[in-house]
Simulated scan of single mutants.
Amino acid sequence: MTISRDMTTLEANVFSQILSGTCEEPIPAHRIRGRFGVSKRQLENIVESLRVNFRVPIVAKKFNPNGYYIPRNEEERSEGLGPYKRQILTEQKNLSIIQSIDLEDFWKNKKAL
């Protein structure tokens, strides 16, 4: 994949912060947001851009200590991908359930809930 643009200053700053994290001590999102004055959503978009546009393998821990880091080996990558895999499975289950519900039947019988 060819990169079609340079990183913005904000992307480079966020990348630098995350680069200083480790699997044992990831960089908490609140610290990055506070340092650069970005919202949760803005940070998520920057992280996504770093992954997609610049192929930075950023992962996150969802339990203490939580935060972002770049894995240094396959074990750290696997640990960081676990939450994403669980989230995908949950979303697939939700999608399947919602798609399988007969809407006419649901609205006809909603009083029974």
Rank of each mutant, 00 (worst) to 15 (best):
F54I: 05
W107V: 04
A29P: 03
N45M: 12
G80D: 02
M1E: 11
N64R: 11
P28Q: 11
I3R: 14
I46P: 08
I98A: 15
Q17M: 15
E74M: 11
V47R: 01
H30N: 13
K40I: 05
S96T: 14
W107E: 14
R86Y: 04
E75P: 00
C23S: 12
Q87W: 02
D6I: 03
E11Y: 07
I88M: 09
P71C: 01
V38Q: 00
D6L: 13
I70F: 00
F54W: 02
I18L: 10
L50Y: 07
I27N: 02
V47N: 04
E75F: 03
L50I: 08
R35M: 12
E75W: 00
P65W: 04
R51H: 02
G67M: 06
E48P: 00
Q87C: 06
N94Q: 15
G21P: 03
N64S: 13
R5I: 01
I46M: 08
Y84L: 14
E44P: 00
K108V: 13
K40T: 08
N109Q: 10
I97V: 15
K62W: 02
R77A: 08
G82E: 14
N73V: 01
E75D: 10
R72T: 05
P26E: 07
L89Q: 13
N53S: 14
N64M: 08
S39Q: 03
G67R: 03
R33N: 07
R31T: 11
L50Q: 08
D102Y: 06
H30L: 10
R77S: 04
T8V: 07
E104S: 11
G21E: 04
Q92D: 05
K61G: 02
L19W: 03
L113T: 00
G34A: 13
K111M: 07
I98V: 15
N109S: 12
H30D: 11
G67S: 07
P65M: 04
R77M: 10
I32V: 14
L103P: 05
P28W: 05
K61W: 01
Q99S: 14
Q99R: 15
G80M: 02
T8E: 08
I46W: 01
P65I: 05
M7H: 05
E74K: 10
E91I: 06
P65G: 04
V47G: 04
L43I: 02
K61R: 15
S39R: 06
I58E: 01
A60V: 03
L43F: 01
E75T: 04
T90W: 10
S78P: 00
E91A: 14
T9P: 06
S4G: 09
R55S: 15
R86V: 10
T2P: 12
R5S: 11
I27W: 01
N45V: 05
A60K: 09
